[in-house]
Design a protein around this nucleic acid. Sequence first.
DNA 1: TGCCAGGCCCTCTTTAGGGCCTT
Length: 202
Amino acid sequence: MEAVAVIDFETTGLSPARGDRATEIAAVILERGKVVGRYQSLMNAGVPIPPFIESLTGISNRMIQDAPPVAEVMREVAGFVGDYPIVAHNAAFDSKFWDAELAGVQRTRTQDFVCSLLLSRRILPDAPSHKLGRLVEFAGLPVAGRYHRALADAEMAASLLVYLEEELRRRHKARDVTVELLRRIQRTPKSQLAKCLAAWKG
DNA sequence: TGCCAGGCCCTCTTTAGGGCCTT
């Protein structure tokens, strides 16, 4: 598979449209099944973190006070990610924050997201849950650090993507797993997937 | 302790409702 950037945001809540902001981002570059580059930073958007989120992520308001401004971090991480296809676990969430925070520095993304949640629902239908942590456990992947911290979650999502790629080869006999194949899989209804995979086998 | 938002996906569906996921 071509090189991709796997990203993960920690935020103050679920919705940038309701005023929630990013508090941390990580991006790892995945190339030939290996992580070859890492970026991680807390960021200060000037919005308080609710107590529930502090306890969920371990990222406190005090930590954010000492962090660099959100604009500085977003310019850096956008440069780091460049034009690589972006992968995230539940990309609908991360893409909302990616777009909203990039807009704050007058930038727009040019690439589409690939979603490891949608892929795992299709490729690992027998997993008891498709939460990132439960998938890591199900697949026997290494726990990269504390869940709900951006770098650990990005590293585990990257491991999961490699595992999904291997499963496509093992279970579905796919020879050439490309980002385009992953995009096709994630937009194919589950009921039609087996038939489509047979037709797409490279 | 996530109700919030929103997209996906299943079903007791499609003129809808509710669970799953992300923080």
